[in-house]
Design a binder for these strands. Structure first.
Lengths: 189, 189
DNA sequence: GTCTAATATGTTAGTGACTAACATTATGGG
DNA sequence: CCCATAATGTTAGTCACTAACATATTAGAC
């Protein structure tokens, strides 16, 4: 089911969602830099301390998307013979191809904010540690040297971060197209 | 001449150097996180305010190396027919090949600190804006699409950051070797 | 040399993200 | 209904970084 009833969620999950929503609204209303963490907590009906118990940083409120672990999983499940960059590309395309358009819109809203704020350059990479680690693990499984695996994975995610921010800023580009183009540039096509 | 007399430098340059040296010493003595900006300023014989007039952030004290603009220059001077990734690789190799071994050691000291501290992941990329912009400009000159240019440049610098941090942590690897290996992975060989 | 304008620094007071320690309340299984 | 535990609140603090304004220092004109 796509829409989970809010009453079915635990208290933790409810405040979690309330915080995400409050943050997104305020970022869009007044900008990322002009929005304080205390302000976000207040709108979510919760204390500032609770905010930081749910999210390790203000950035995470914007970039802790649920797709990261899914991508990591998809990459790990890729066929062993596949080239590293292709494996990552495939995992990302597969994951983002399976989610509903509502979630894609939400992703776009968040990344559109990232694209506008200078202090958020590199933010996607900073908040994709799990994905990078999974990529490294997946390539290690294929016998790729650990250091080289991390170099490639980091480069890939950083490049994708730029591409996704660009995608979010231009309404007329579809996500698969933007993805294909970026992966082509990065050598994962 | 390689060693400029300290008496020949302007006051600004002298405090600049004093801050860099004090920061490096303290980071090595007590670790990056455990060293405060006030502490650095005190050892440099200067106020904390002055520190932030010379460097925009604590990170910059570690990563504002003088090679970045040189690399940017070298990349812009590359032959127009050269492929983007190769142009960057060539510019970096050329620049780092021309500097004295003392400066290389200093670079290694700084990157060794980066390699150890978790909060400095992605720090190289964050502090290489000038290089990234130069790469983008150089590729635009060659007719490469702006977005694709930025994707490639960002990926390259991020990957190199990982490679350099790794190099700094292992005494037995030479910088050219580490560079060649990384550029091979990143498609710039 | 002295005077002066620009340069470089100091002081103070503050903001905002983030943390630690401890008290308090809500929730869900028995 | 009771109780262990999960979830949140409160308070007080640290630290990177900034703004506004005062002060000192330097470098060149004379």
């Amino acid at each position: 089911m796509l829409v989970t009833n809010i009453l079915d969620m635990s208290r933790w999950d409810r405040t979690h969602d309330a915080l995400l929503q409050a943050a997104l609204e305020l970022f869009e209303e007044h900008g990322y830099d002009a929005t304080g963490t205390a302000q976000i907590a207040r709108r979510a009906g919760v204390s500032e301390m609770t905010l930081f118990r749910h999210f390790p940083s203000k950035e995470a409120l914007l970039l802790a998307d649920p797709f990261d672990p899914l991508i990591a999983e998809a990459v790990l499940a890729r066929p062993r013979g596949e080239a590293p960059m292709r494996a990552l590309a495939g995992g990302i395309r597969q994951t983002l191809g399976e989610i509903d358009s509502g979630s894609i819109d939400a992703l776009r809203r968040r990344l559109a904010i990232v694209a506008k704020v200078a202090s958020l350059q590199g933010a996607v990479e900073r908040n994709s540690t799990a994905t990078i680690d999974a990529l490294v693990a997946a390539q290690e499984d294929r016998g790729v040297n650990t250091v080289n695996a991390r170099i490639a994975a980091t480069a890939m995610i950083s490049g994708l971060g730029v591409a996704l921010a660009e995608w979010a800023g231009h309404e007329h580009v579809s996500l698969p197209d933007a993805l294909d183009s970026a992966l082509d540039v990065l050598g994962g096509a």
